[in-house]
Structure formats: C-alpha cells, structure tokens
Design a protein around this nucleic acid. Structure first.
Lengths: 217, 217
DNA sequence: GATGATTTGTACGTATGTATA
DNA sequence: ATATACATACGTACAAATCAT
C-alpha cells in the first residue's frame, strides 16, 4: 500500500491536480536543474503514486507551457524560463487589460458595486492567511471584469487564457507580500473603472498582470 | 463524419495528440450538443483505442479551455451562449487594435518599412478594380501588424478570429467606396505606428474594424 | 436515505520507439 | 551499423466516487 508522504489538506482534488501544482512549484522554484529530464517513474516514486497521475500532470503542465514535452522523449524543464511562457503572460496581460478598459466603458453601476464588494471581500481576507479564499476572491474579481467587458467572445478568450495559469498561480498565494501587492493593484483598477477612466484601467491591469504573475523568476 | 477506426498508420504523432485534434474539431464543429457529456469509454470505443489516450486528450483540451473537466464528473462541452456577429466583430476589433498598439510600441524600423510597402501596394491596387488582389493586400497588411505585435499568442488568436470573417468579407471588396475607406483607415494606422503613437494606432484600428467590417447590416 | 449501476481515478504490465554502446 | 537498454505510450484491471433508482 503506497501511502502519501504527507496528509493532503484538500482531499477533494485528484492526484494529478495535486502533482501538477507540486511539480509546477518545484519547477518555478528551480528545484530541477534547467534542461533536466522529468522522469515519470522517478517522479512517481518521489511522490508515492503510480505513473498515471504523473503523466496527466505533465500533460497539463506542458499544455500550460511550463515544461517541454515531446512524444516518446519525455518532459524537460526548458533551459531558460520558457520563452513562450513569458509570451503567454504578456498575452494574458493584454487581454485582461482590454477587459478592464471595456469594463471602464461599459460596466453598469450595479456591476461596479458588485466588483467593489468582491474587492472588499478580498481586503477582509488579506488579514487572515486564508490563501485558498484569497485565490477564490481573485478569480471572482477577474471574472467580474470579464463579464463587465460586455463582450462574450473577449470574456471567453480571456478566461480560457487565465485558466491555463491556475497551476502556476497556486503557490503564489502563500506569499504575504504577493497578496498585498495584488490587493493594491486591484484597488487601482477598481478606482479607474468607477471613475470611467478607460486608459487608467488598462494601464493598471497591464501593470498588475505583468508584475504579479510568475515572471521569469 | 469522423473516422471510427484508423488502420494503425503510425505517424510521428501519439494517439493522444491525434484524438485531441479529432475531438477538438468535433467540438468546434458542433458535433456534440452543448452540455453533452464526453464519455471516456464511448470515445475510446468510437476511435478504437483504450481509455488512456482518450483521457490524456481530454486533459489537454480541458487545459486549453475547449471543454470543461471536473474531478470525478467527467468532461462536458461548455454550453456557450450563442455568439452573435456584432459581438464577434467587436472582439476582432479589440484584438486587431491591441496588435496595432503593440506594433506601434515594438515594431522594428524594418518592419515599419515592410508595412509601408504593403500599404503602397494596396494604394496602387485601389485604382484598378482588382478585388482579389486588394483582399490579398489587406490580409498582408493585417498579417504584418499581427507579426509586429511581437507576441505569437496574441498574433495567433487575432489571426484565427480574423480568418472566420473571410467568407463574410468576400463580397465587400467589390464596393469602390469600401476599398477607398479601407485604404484611408490603413493609412491612419500606418501613420500612428511610424509615429510610435500607441494610443492613436489603437483608436484608428478600432474605428477601422468597427466601421469597415460587415456590420449588422 | 440507502443501494446498485455507471463512470472516473489509479495502478501496473506490455510493447514500441529512442538513445547509447 | 547493429544490438542492447531504457523510457514512454498504450492497454487492462481494480478501486472509489458519483448518479439514478
């Protein structure tokens, strides 16, 4: 009976998801040498699971752009923080910034109030160390902006881009400084939107994603 | 119709990749009803493979955002609300405008010269009634802007959105007034970009697509 | 609300393609 | 260049959870 090395706090997750987050964190922290091969059996043994969930986690991370995965050749962590990853972050930043600008132009007052309430909830959580709740509030904030753009195509594209970064963001919320900066950035975006200042909303969001997302560490 | 069984032609692709493409096509073509469950066993049987590659393909598609995949509950094709033409045009306008802004910021001088040469070619064609050549030049102009954004992700998303309008644009080029307006709009964009005026490039492109594309006629 | 059927998640074995001697 | 070793891709069996009844 292979037992997990340590008790998982969130029991509702699948092993593949857990591993995806763990491996993503490890790669971003530089625990693996750049260019090193991520051996399936080695990882499976290390985490005390079979190769199946490891494979699925690697597929997920490859699609997210964090690792390179070539058929029959296995996974490697790209020598330098993946070039495409930075490109994808920049792309996400542009999409989110567009949503912010459109929100400044098109949001109803009711939607503005809702956005503010989400922000307040996030601020309240800032005191507690509740990383999980914080992540949830962050998603709610951005989702409100996607909706506020009043364009389902743009909202959909942005949301789907954003979803790819979920495993990469997972660990960030543990960092107190990151949480604080995130809250401050959101505040700036919120102010620009309620002031209907499209250019400021755009700029604030661009800066937020550009700096807050896991850049080339 | 998707081919149920393939006579084991072992290309350099893996089964999972093959399936991923097939399923993606099927979903985008609307072969599955929105909200329909994508059963692993069914798909495996349908394509004549085991569940393993099907699972990996579904993971890939879920990460890409094409399908929804919730733990222990399987995959479903998200019920996307009907996207009307105006929304899609507005979305394309935003993407093209973003490319224009990024081009103003990042284009090299060489790229600027190339863009100008494409524009000149288009101007020369304006006199003749060559609708086909004009359409080609228009595509070249926008392609140059996509490239000039220096972000492959954004370029790709924009190009794929644009491609969807090709059939709708086909007839427009017959109209002399449309061709003239299009050329003038491009000129404004070009001037803003060579002046490195990001905001002006953005605005000019937004206006161009918003007015020139086949609006809700 | 409990129970059975169906489906997903995980483990493991086998074969084929890749890399190395 | 041929052969050998090894890692990945795929198939299959079992376990666990969801949903229907």
């Amino acid at each position: 009976m292979t037992t997990p090395t340590h008790p998982t706090l969130t029991a509702k997750q699948t092993q593949a998801e857990r591993l995806s987050e763990l491996i993503a964190q490890a790669v971003m922290q530089g625990d693996f040498a750049p260019g090193a091969r991520l051996d399936e059996v080695h990882l499976a043994q290390h985490f005390g699971v079979s190769r199946t969930p490891v494979r699925e986690a690697l597929r997920h991370l490859a699609t997210s752009g964090l690792i390179d995965l070539r058929p029959r050749r296995g996974a490697v962590v790209p020598a330098r923080p993946h070039l495409d990853l930075q490109t994808m972050i920049a792309a996400l930043a542009e999409m989110e910034a567009t949503c912010a600008r459109l929100s400044a132009e098109h949001m109803t007052v009711t939607e503005q109030h809702f956005l503010a309430s989400v922000h307040d909830r996030m601020a309240a959580l800032a005191q507690t160390g509740d990383a999980d709740g914080y992540a949830q509030a962050d998603n709610a904030f951005h989702a409100a902006l996607h909706a506020g753009a009043h364009n389902l195509v743009i909202a959909d594209v942005t949301a789907s881009m954003r979803r790819r970064f979920a495993p990469l963001r997972a660990g960030q919320w543990q960092d107190q400084a990151y949480r604080a900066r995130c809250l401050a950035d959101h505040g700036a975006v919120l102010r620009a939107i309620t002031a209907r200042d499209a250019a400021a909303a755009h700029a604030a969001m661009l800066q937020h994603i550009g700096s807050a997302e896991p850049a080339a560490a």
